[in-house]
Every structure is written in structure tokens, then in C-alpha cells.
């Protein structure tokens, strides 16, 4: 099966992708309010030592995301 989408977690360092949607509804409400929208350009900047927290940039705003949060944001393949 060909994967149609990836999540932010799958992004390599310095890789960018456009967001499709956010699966967790509470997170979706919070992130859209912060300005992460479907179609926003998300860049993976770096992650913490054990890979559980991610530093991303979405349309120029810097965000810290947990792994579950990163997994919940679907991006274009």
C-alpha cells in the first residue's frame, strides 16, 4: 500500500512539508488557535536527546511539540 500522508514525526531534520490536518481534536483546537493551519509550512528543526520532543517551525513560529502531538499532525507525503 502506498502511503498517502506522513506525520510531522516522520520529517527529517530540516525537512519541510505542508500540513493536511490535525487528528487529535483538542490539539487541533489549540494549534489552529496558535496559527498552525491546514496548509501551513512545517519545518522540523531538531528533537531532544531521546527523541520525544520536537522543535518545529510552522509558518515562521517556533513550536515545541511532544511526540504524540507531532504524530497527530498529518503532512503531505
Amino acid at each position: 500500500m502506498v502511503r498517502r500522508y506522513r506525520t510531522v514525526e516522520n520529517l527529517k531534520s530540516r525537512e519541510c512539508a505542508r500540513t493536511l490536518r490535525i487528528e487529535d481534536p483538542v490539539l487541533a483546537s489549540r494549534l489552529t488557535a496558535m496559527g498552525v493551519l491546514p496548509g501551513s509550512l512545517i519545518e522540523m528543526v531538531r528533537c531532544t536527546p531521546f527523541g520525544h520532543t520536537y522543535y518545529v517551525k510552522a509558518d515562521g513560529i517556533r513550536l515545541a511539540l511532544r511526540r504524540e502531538e507531532a504524530q497527530s499532525i498529518l503532512v503531505e507525503a
Binding site: 483538542v26 490539539l27 489549540r30 494549534l31 496558535m34 520532543t53 522543535y55 513560529i61 517556533r62 513550536l63 515545541a64 511539540l65 511532544r66 502531538e69
Partner: peptide, 11 residues
């Protein structure tokens, strides 16, 4: 209640 980080890192 689930817990969230989703924190903005200011300039």
C-alpha cells in the same frame, strides 16, 4: 484529562 505541550518558543 489529556496533557499537551504545544508551546510557542518566543524570539
Amino acid at each position: 484529562e489529556s496533557s499537551y505541550l504545544a508551546l510557542e518558543l518566543p524570539v
